[in-house]
Design a protein around this nucleic acid. Sequence first.
DNA 1: TCTGGCACTCGATTCTACCGAGTGCCAGCC
DNA 2: GGCTGGCACTCGGTAGAATCGAGTGCCAGA
Lengths: 379, 379
Amino acid sequence: MTSATHHRESADDEAHKELDERKAAILEAVVTEYIGTAQPVGSGHVASAAGVSVSSATVRSEMAALEQDGYLVQPHTSAGRIPTDKGYRFFVDHLTAPGVLGPSERQQVRRFFDQVHLEMEDMLERTSGLLSDLTSCAAVVVGPSHEQAAIRSVQLVGLSPRLALLVVVLADGAVEKRSVELAEDSGAELLAAASAALAREVVGHLLSGAANFAPSGDQQLDRVLAAAGAALTEMAMGEENDQVFVGGPSRLAVAFDAVETVRSVLSILEQQLVVVSLLRDVLDRGLSVAIGTEHGFEPLASCAVVVAPLSVDGFEAGAIGLLGPTRMNYPQALAAAHVVGERLGERIGDSLGRTSDAPASEPDRRGSPRKDGERRGRG
Amino acid sequence: MTSATHHRESADDEAHKELDERKAAILEAVVTEYIGTAQPVGSGHVASAAGVSVSSATVRSEMAALEQDGYLVQPHTSAGRIPTDKGYRFFVDHLTAPGVLGPSERQQVRRFFDQVHLEMEDMLERTSGLLSDLTSCAAVVVGPSHEQAAIRSVQLVGLSPRLALLVVVLADGAVEKRSVELAEDSGAELLAAASAALAREVVGHLLSGAANFAPSGDQQLDRVLAAAGAALTEMAMGEENDQVFVGGPSRLAVAFDAVETVRSVLSILEQQLVVVSLLRDVLDRGLSVAIGTEHGFEPLASCAVVVAPLSVDGFEAGAIGLLGPTRMNYPQALAAAHVVGERLGERIGDSLGRTSDAPASEPDRRGSPRKDGERRGRG
DNA sequence: TCTGGCACTCGATTCTACCGAGTGCCAGCC
DNA sequence: GGCTGGCACTCGGTAGAATCGAGTGCCAGA
């Protein structure tokens, strides 16, 4: 079901080649109902669903076939059926209308973005709240990494005679700080001189750029610069921990029936590194939904993850993710992630000042950065 | 066992005047066992507990009396008994040995503080993790408020022609930022001039101090200063949101049996304002434990909160809190909160540089700030 | 090829019986 | 008087049987 396989032009039954139209409709009915009720779905219900106009007997035999093919399972004989991960996958790939938010949600998003004008962190944080409100899932918002932002300002601020704070402002508006212990008491003039020297050296460069300072002759100054340089390097290393905001984890408490599952999923969410790399991984594989074990991350096998890139001026600058049970409401989640991701991206673009002289500012460089239209499935 | 009530020299039965020694021992046995097993405790178990050397029949009649007095309840006739909030309260006030951590925990704490040397935020964050590991509760660490810290440095950094970032460094090492929109394109010189003017005006003052700038004659400069002043004010307002770190919320998933309780407690934890003010309130009332409804906050009625002040150089600079079910392990939680709070306070004191010239730096000003020895009860 | 019908399955629910941990009370003992 | 062993009683929890009903598979007929 890669886009390659997929764009072959042929009749519907060929496009969905694995499943004829009726089976697809039945699968859709099962998934939809199961998402709503969390109960195994029987042939009777499916037969009476819109979009299916055959008798329950026919539905039964089709459902048996779907089970054979791995799209459905029966929890036990003589019970209704439940979608498998594969079933959800088909649903997401083929059966989901290009999700639109309901009017009230749409308004909620609009109002949110009209009203929010804050520093980046607050905005991201509150966005994660918005997303979890919209979808009743836990939401993760990963903010832009600062790796590509040039240093705009460096300053050493004295806190006490032997302690200074190195404050670095990046072009994207982020501020990093790190305390620097000084070997000897240093006065304001020394720190000012050091700040100036530092600024000459690193302003305009990336944080990760090496910081080597030519000896200036002044030993005291050189010692301070060395300490500051070390702090800069540490800062660049430590920059892996992006800004991650998790919204509405409490939603998960009701999403699963087993407490143990809740606990383990929550504890995953606490490890932000894991979450971020999971989202990255899913995005990099070109997915916008990872269902069950598709992401290969065992502890979240009973979850589905919906991701959307956060693109700012055409660049992928982060990600937003929704985490819920595999029986989550995919259309809604996809729509919410998509819309909010887009709006947030624009918003960040605005607040960075679009006329910024950051490297590469031509407004139209669509080529290389992934431009996603309605991409939503595996390809 | 409040220090005040407690130091009265009289027989034990007077110190515990509400409960004779045997009742106290029985109550202790019930609480201890219930904390361990989460099952109603019957007279048989109590009778065979260390510290109780009477028959189960006697225990029964004592337990009936304890129930009469409101220390215990029976979930239903002919079941064992469960402590009430009042029962836990007595336990905490009178029966808890001045909690000591086990050797392995002690070592864990030591190792943690030996190894952690980071910026404040990371340290607080990781401390919340440590606490939740130690106690199997959710932990909250509220960092020092910046209200009392003087401004050390102010700087306007240009991000784009019409957007600047106001960066304020406080004496405690905190860095605040806020973006400032400029009415017109402003060059580096203008921003530098504005920074200098701002610095002259506010460095050494508190953030909350009013920022009024005498017109300088230069209209362009004045406009920038006005915008920056507004940003400063906003910053001071917004400063309510202290640095709050919640560790190990996933622990709560297993602590309660009703999922709904889990959800609601988790969602409380998401609202950091609420949590902070709750901790403040409990601390202000001189408690170190708030059990059940004692804090008057309905949604957490089934929880107990253990708090410890975070005092830096004798000042209360924040708080640490532990949140768990009322049947949490109080001795352990109290000990952990106490020890970690103390160590963290020292640590923060160190990293602020004890020779800081912040207002009032005499090393020995014990009077006004609350000096808590073994305070643990109702104060 | 679809449908109605039918026999069958099996989880969920209900009911009953019963067990046993726990209680309250009381008579007797120290 | 206070503690203890003994006893009758309570009542939640568990086990087993009966029942219900949603759901299935299969088949004969339209």
